[in-house]
C-alpha cells in the first residue's frame, strides 16, 4: 500500500502456540482508519486466534501490536478496550440470564450518583442503539436467552458500537442472521466506516464480506498467505489464496504464500 498515513492497527510478526501447535505463526496485518479489512481463511486457519490477540482474549508469545504507530500493551480484554478496540465474538459472549440492556453495559454499567445501577438510563440508551440496528426489537425486559439467534447477535453488535469504538473486530458477525438482518449489518458497517472506524471482518465465507471489504488478508495454517485490495483481485483469486495459498500477481505475498518454483 502506498498510503503514507499511520495505520490505526499494526500487528507485526505475531505468534502464539497452544501445546506445541503454532496457531498463529509470524503473522502481520494492518488496518487504516475508515477501512474494512476482511480476514479470510478456512476454519482453523488462525484468523480468530490472531484477532483474539488484538482483543486481549489471548496473550501473544511473540510479536508486537502498534495502535496509531505507538506500541500497545494488550494483556487482557480490559487493556484492549482502553485502546478503543471493541470485539463481537463468534460465540457472542453474552450473559444469557440478564436482559439486553444489562448485557450492553456488562462491565461498564452506568450508575446513579448514589453508586447504584442506573437501569433506567441503561435501558434508554439500549433502546436508542438497538433501534439503529434492529428497529423491530422490543424485548428489552427479557433475559437474552429468550431471544432468537439474530436478536442475540444484534445485542452483541450493539454492545460493540455503544462505546465509541475506534477499532471494531467482527468475528463471523452475520453467522446467525437472516438476509434482512445481514443487510442491516452491511449498512451499519458502511456507516461506521464513514465515521472513520477501522473494521476487521473475519469470515470463512468470502461471499459474506468481499463486497464490504477494502482489502483482504488471507490466512492458512496459521500463516498469512497475502494481502490484496479487493479492487485488484477477483473472488476466484481470493479463493485460490484461501484454498491453495496461491498469491495472485496483484497481491502482496506473506510468509504463508505457496512458493512458486
Amino acid at each position: 500500500m502506498t498510503d503514507q498515513r499511520t495505520p490505526l492497527v499494526e500487528m507485526k510478526n505475531v505468534s502464539i502456540s497452544f501445546g506445541g501447535i503454532h496457531a498463529v505463526d509470524n503473522a502481520s496485518v494492518d488496518l487504516y482508519p475508515g477501512e474494512v479489512v476482511a480476514l479470510l481463511g478456512h476454519n482453523g486457519a488462525g484468523k480468530s486466534t490472531l484477532i483474539k490477540i488484538l482483543s486481549g482474549a489471548y496473550k501473544r508469545d511473540a510479536g508486537e501490536i502498534l495502535i496509531n504507530g505507538e506500541p500497545a500493551d494488550i494483556n487482557n480484554p480490559r487493556d484492549a478496550k482502553k485502546y478503543g478496540i471493541e470485539t463481537i465474538y463468534q460465540t457472542l459472549a453474552v450473559a444469557d440470564n440478564v436482559d439486553a440492556a444489562a448485557n450492553l453495559y456488562l462491565g461498564r454499567e452506568l450508575r446513579t450518583p448514589w453508586g447504584t445501577l442506573d437501569d433506567v438510563a441503561m435501558e434508554a440508551k439500549a433502546r436508542e442503539v438497538m433501534g439503529r440496528l434492529n428497529p423491530n426489537f422490543q424485548r428489552f425486559k427479557e433475559p437474552v436467552k429468550a431471544l432468537s439467534g439474530g436478536q442475540r447477535q444484534s445485542v452483541a453488535i450493539a454492545r460493540a458500537i455503544l462505546f465509541d469504538a475506534r477499532i471494531l473486530i467482527m468475528d463471523e458477525p452475520t453467522a446467525a442472521l437472516g438476509p434482512q438482518e445481514t443487510a442491516q449489518v452491511g449498512e451499519l458497517i458502511k456507516q461506521l466506516k464513514k465515521e472513520g472506524i477501522g473494521i476487521f471482518l473475519i469470515s470463512h465465507d468470502i461471499h459474506d464480506v468481499f463486497d464490504l471489504a477494502d482489502r483482504v488478508s488471507v490466512m492458512k495454517n496459521g500463516q498469512v498467505v497475502g494481502h490484496a485490495r479487493t479492487q485488484d483481485v477477483t473472488k476466484d483469486e481470493v479463493l485460490g489464496m484461501i484454498i491453495l495459498g496461491k498469491c495472485p500477481p496483484k497481491a502482496i505475498p506473506g510468509p504463508g504464500a505457496m512458493q512458486v518454483a
Binding site: 482483543s55 482474549a57 487482557n76 480484554p77 480490559r78 478496550k81 470485539t87 465474538y89 460465540t91 457472542l92 459472549a93 453474552v94 450473559a95 444469557d96 440470564n97 440478564v98 456488562l106 462491565g107 461498564r108 454492545r159
Partner: peptide
C-alpha cells in the same frame, strides 16, 4: 450473576 452465568463472556467484556 454474569460470572456464574458465563465466566468466559464475563472475562471477555473486561470483568476481572
Amino acid at each position: 450473576y454474569a460470572i456464574g452465568n458465563n465466566p468466559e463472556a464475563a472475562r471477555l467484556v473486561g470483568i476481572p
